[in-house]
Design a protein around this nucleic acid. Structure first.
Lengths: 194, 194
DNA sequence: ATAATTGTTGACTAACTAGTCAACTTAGAT
DNA sequence: ATCTAAGTTGACTAGTTAGTCAACAATTAT
């Protein structure tokens, strides 16, 4: 379980072989096929496990009890710290596996993995939408269409994460919060407050 | 040449084998190794060829003779039309190969491909930076730091392209120009003019 | 024409790939 | 203790992979 996540995160989904997974997991191939029918099957469960581990943390960060702009601030901080830790552990910036794996498998015939990834990504976007809507209601930002704004912000985050991975540079992520504010048209006073 | 571009664009770099490339190109493996030492070598030349074909079009779109905001408008249009054509040809949205391949190979030991990709990406960002600087000089946008803004805009485009690929949905790209305007803080009057 | 260079090929290794399976080991229930 | 179900394994296909190479063909120079 941990093995496949590491391998497809650090390397790529397509280039990760079942032999590699078994080696890393210290398990023989027979055992693998006792539990899973194929690599896709394992990847699906892996994604699910990963998501279920992140979900509580995101629920806390995006809790409605937290002021909306602070949620975004905390999320940017969290993402940076998380990537920094991963970077220290694996020696390079890995970004978000949902993006890199998603982009890689999107053209495959078997659509199950794409669907799962899109599903989780949509959950994540929802956090942003709610935060933006609350910020708009509080008059903190200029976002008459929170859903549209959340898509823009989400695309921005996705781009940042991918850039950080490609450039292998954590500093790229440091612009996240200022970029968020510019993108949302945060009013000066609100920015200082958050 | 055309073969590898199609294969690693539609599929992935890692999962594309030299046998596949040779088959698609109608060439035997011996010939391949007569010209290239490895897959990386071929991919490097492929990227270079691809870039040299796009460059004149981008030079035209971002010509200093064109009003700055119109450059961005034209670029968004161009990108959409280009993706639509590719989509009709291959049956699915493929996004930008620099992003998908870049994300995939970024953790490899051999850094040559990453370097080439980063180099081309940096060229592309420069187009945006110049357009934003000109727009700022003309008082059309609120961008005191054009380089920083261009990084934000570039990340946004990168995210959009990746999303379009993951969701296999061209409509994602339709938000590009309105997102650009929101992101740059385009003044109402300037937006109407462009 | 002929020699030299450039390019092409099929046949070849040796390592790796996904996937199967009968035999084995463990752990839990009775 | 012993029976059973759950899990593990090594050895096994059969196809694919990267990469090599001597022999062959095509082009070009002289």
């Amino acid at each position: 379980m941990k093995a496949i996540r590491e391998l497809i995160w650090k390397g790529s989904y397509g280039a990760t072989t079942i032999d590699q997974i078994c080696d890393k997991a210290g398990v023989k191939k027979g055992s693998f096929y006792y539990f899973f029918d194929s690599k896709v099957e394992l990847a699906l469960v892996g994604m699910e496990v990963d998501w279920s581990q992140h979900r509580p943390e995101l629920d806390a960060i995006f809790s409605p009890t937290v002021p909306p702009l602070e949620r975004l601030q905390r999320y940017c901080d969290y993402f940076y710290r998380f990537q920094a830790e991963i970077c220290k552990q694996y020696g390079c910036v890995l970004g978000c596996p949902l993006f890199s794996v998603g982009a890689e498998v999107s053209t495959q015939e078997d659509h199950r993995l794409q669907q799962k990834i899109q599903e989780i990504l949509e959950y994540k976007r929802k956090y942003l939408e709610t935060a933006i809507r609350d910020a708009q209601a509080a008059g903190l930002v200029d976002a008459p269409d929170p859903a549209a704004k959340s898509r823009i912000l989400f695309a921005y985050y996705q781009g940042l994460a991918t850039q950080a991975r490609i450039q292998n540079n954590l500093d790229v992520l440091k612009d996240a919060i200022s970029g968020t504010y510019e993108l949302l048209g945060v009013k000066k006073s609100a920015a200082v407050a958050a």
